[in-house]
Design a protein around this nucleic acid. Sequence first.
DNA 1: GGTCCTATAAACACGG
DNA 2: CCCGTGTTTATAGGAC
Length: 675
Amino acid sequence: MMVESASETIRSAPSGQNGVGSLSGQADGSSGGATGTTASGTGREVTTGADSNGEMSPAELLHFQQQQALQVARQFLLQQASGLSSPGNNDSKQSASAVQVPVSVAMMSPQMLTPQQMQQILSPPQLQALLQQQQALMLQQLQEYYKKQQEQLHLQLLTQQQAGKPQPKEALGNKQLAFQQQLLQMQQLQQQHLLNLQRQGLVSLQPNQASGPLQTLPQASPVSPTAAVCPTDLPQLWKGEGAPGQPAEDSVKQEGLDLTGTAATATSFAAPPKVSPPLSHHTLPNGQPTVLTSRRDSSSHEETPGSHPLYGHGECKWPGCETLCEDLGQFIKHLNTEHALDDRSTAQCRVQMQVVQQLEIQLAKESERLQAMMAHLHMRPSEPKPFSQPVTVSAADSFPDGLVHPPTSAAAPVTPLRPPGLGSASLHGGGPARRRSSDKFCSPISSELAQNHEFYKNADVRPPFTYASLIRQAILETPDRQLTLNEIYNWFTRMFAYFRRNTATWKNAVRHNLSLHKCFVRVENVKGAVWTVDEREYQKRRPPKMTGSPTLVKNMISGLSYGALNASYQAALAESSFPLLNSPGMLNPGSASSLLPLSHDDVGAPVEPLPSNGSSSPPRLSPPQYSHQVQVKEEPAEAEEDRQPGPPLGAPNPSASGPPEDRDLEEELPGEELS
DNA sequence: GGTCCTATAAACACGG
DNA sequence: CCCGTGTTTATAGGAC
């Protein structure tokens, strides 16, 4: 989809690789480019089990099952995510393969799209409303359900007691057993719910089959999940296959649900003319690497050579699109034509992103619940939670240094699987701690980078940042805030697989940028020259525009301008039949801004670094004011910059280190006034 | 259509 | 002379 335009802007990979810059050792072709992996790695996690309970204590059982439920949820999340990212991987109508991926992936992958970004994309009010609704409903539902289960349990116990087992001892034993069973049942039901949730995206799964493995309990669900819970307004989310008789399709249909499902249900399914429940079906693009057992239903497309995540069962899995395609080729064609980069697709993408986020939140909640349960039962989670996230998803949103980032399935296609729990932080060569400090005044690029560090590092993908911003980032990541040219080179190659491969040209570009932009100041040193960043200059020159990943940028921009957002988003909503969101009331820019820390990417967000200045009329600001603001922002950097260049390195010429700044200031202020 | 910004390519200067 | 580093110029595409 978005690839097309992307390739347009990002003019392919540098063709003529004259061996000019011999970066000697560093260009180890280790990058390996976009080799396999894909999201397939998800398939196994949940392995059923759960049956041999006989010896487990209720608490253990509980824990175990909760874990499973969580895993299932996780799976679902991953799939959702992969579904998101997938579209970009194949449709390569044009060429520039290496380039395309990044853009599209960057655009859709949750990994790349940080929660913040997602939030940017979706108007805060929308998000909030969604979240709240969904959560409320889910909670309500679960609570009701569990309540009922417990009641039932109680009842059963009573019954048993009344039935009067002669021996008290046995009675107790029975009681326990009953409890265990009940617990197990509850857990299984819960798991089922989760599975349903997952399944909804999988059109293919048949209710019976799906439930098969689960129905290990004899008294399996006297109370069908649905029945138990079922307040009519319940999100279909849980409805799923609760009712055996219900055709999978049925439940599937609502899949739009989770995300909005709630909302949608609550209001009504005002399916727009064109596409009905848009989000529906596709959600789980193709292949669900399935969680449970190895059901073949979903068929592991991922693995199949000629598969596409958005293509399955002969039809396009794009949200709201069920176009039948005979073969992959036809599908690709369809994809490129029908789902090209446009407002609609973009918006749909956003919606999908929200779906994922939604699920993440749910997972977090479940996780929290588990912990609470465990705590209550005085159990300490024995097994290391594979996905243990900070329980509160919101935490991820606010990552101070943008290091934490949830499910990374998005990057799956290209990056080596990384331990989910592991933030990219740990991988940061430079050292997270160090960066942390600098982040304060680093542009968001840092967070973006931090979050997707792994991705860029391993994927031969062109980072969606300008050379200037990258160089700056490299420099600012340094304690000294200064780097030699060669060190900058190294940073590039270290941080981006892309720059490991396409050497020559970008080095030239780096040099060119260093020389060209006033924001880069060259400081003579004992051992040579180092480059530093003049934040003032850098900030000054940002407002104008942005380049890098056109699509990404575009999206970010749109995310910033509510007008655009609303337009596209509503378009999507219309198609997605999310009436609730569509209601004007939901879109409230005012609250939006207050809720979201609109952090833009350095790439395209001129505003961030200079918030106060963000009024975007820098030049107009009175000199004192302007300079003041800048200084405040910059102080830390400057301070270091001032000292570092000189003293630490021997500073033969103190004039070199100190002056540059002053000089700049002098030079700049006038310039500002002029502009 | 003009302007600004960025990317890319390439020529050239300089010093080690 | 080669190489790395810097500087500068030219060209092209995208965005406003």
